[in-house]
């Protein structure tokens, strides 16, 4: 057997995961700055549950712990889920989310690289259908909260429940949620948008976090860890669909700007839809996959029962990935344009 190549590049799975996590840090810091220390608690809890579940399942599957735990993939899933969930939720919410993400969506499908669905989004979807109330109580921006929590307070809230301090003192609904409820009630859009939780583009505070995710995403692009196709197509699909709906009926449908800078749009575009395992892999396939995910996000936000649609849109498009990839194979060097490829069997 020929052993070449005898030299390898410096690329490694664990380094890729680590760099993606580093690119999340601006958003995390902004979140902690704007919404209080709750994010540290949820990140910590999700990470811990992820490691425990991953190790447990690896042991049950008879796989070595060291190479698979050190690939950082479980930690990245934990961070993505933590950033998609409300902070200051009860601890078991994070536990159940990670159970679905790591055990069900990842390890039961065969572990790293084998999962059909984005693990973090499976965790999110399981939680939002099971515990919709907990999932809509988001930490209020520091300036808007009646009560500023310390890190210890945050731990207390997460583990001991909401005992001494009333949840209303530090949580609020998201802008997508507020818009949806109010617009359906017939409140004029100007008065909805004048509420204090709305900022200049999206939700007060959330828009800054979204900008930080955008910055982190651009870092991923510059490091060539992702290509431009998925984020651009996702954001374009979302903005275009939201824009058309907004033109048709501005009283019911928020502006594309609000859509881009609220909810999970930026995180989804750069960090979640780009998960290589579950995303389309061909250049044209990525455009279709992410464009459709953006479109579905806008549709679900506009007409669905849930305030945000990123998770369901991504999961729905995950189902289509094998099909999209098969029919979007790029032209191989030396083949005539239009020559059929990848379909012969």
């Amino acid at each position: 057997m020929i052993g070449s190549p005898y030299i390898l590049g410096r690329n490694s799975t664990s380094a890729i995961m680590l760099k993606v996590m580093l690119a999340l840090i601006p958003g995390i810091v902004a979140h902690a700055w704007l919404f209080g220390p709750g994010i540290w608690v949820s990140l910590f809890l999700c990470s811990a549950f992820a490691i425990v579940f991953e190790a447990l399942l690896l042991l049950m599957r008879g796989l070595p712990l060291k190479p698979f735990l050190s690939d950082n993939s479980a930690l990245l899933t934990a961070w993505l889920l933590a950033l998609s969930l409300p902070t200051l939720a009860p601890w078991w919410l994070y536990a159940i989310g990670m159970l679905f993400a790591i055990v069900v969506a990842k390890q039961l499908y065969g572990g790293l690289g084998q999962n059909l669905f984005n693990p973090a989004m499976i965790g999110y979807a399981a939680l939002i259908v099971s515990f919709p109330v907990n999932m809509t109580q988001w930490a209020a921006p520091v300036g808007l909260a009646d009560h500023a929590l310390t890190l210890l307070d945050a731990f207390d809230v997460v583990f001991a429940g909401q005992g001494s301090i009333s949840a209303d003192a530090y949580t609020s609904a998201t802008v997508l949620d507020t818009w949806k409820t109010q617009a359906r009630l017939g409140t004029p859009s100007e008065s909805i948008l004048s509420q204090p939780i709305f900022g200049w583009a999206g939700g007060q505070g959330h828009e800054i976090v979204a900008l930080m995710y955008l910055a982190g995403g651009l870092l991923l692009l510059s490091l060539k860890l992702i290509t431009w196709h998925i984020p651009l197509a996702f954001l374009a699909g979302l903005a275009a669909t939201a824009g058309v709906l907004h033109l048709i009926d501005p009283t019911q449908h928020a502006s594309p700007l609000l859509h881009l800078f609220s909810g999970g749009a930026m995180l989804g575009a750069f960090f979640i839809a780009t998960d290589p395992v579950t995303a389309a892999s061909t250049p044209r396939g990525k455009l279709i996959y992410a464009g459709m995910a953006g479109l579905l996000t806008a549709i679900i936000r506009a007409f669905g029962g849930y305030p945000d649609g990123v998770a369901f849109a991504v999961l729905l498009m995950n189902v289509c990935v094998p099909f999209i990839d098969t029919y979007t194979q790029p032209r191989v060097f030396g083949h005539h344009p239009g020559h059929s490829k990848g379909r012969k069997s």
Binding site: T13, I16, P67, F68, D71, S73, G111, L112, G113, Q114, T227, P276, V277, A279, S281
Partner: peptide
């Protein structure tokens, strides 16, 4: 050591 493919492309 060889790890699973993550389809990173």
């Amino acid at each position: 050591i060889e790890l699973p493919c993550i389809r990173c492309g």
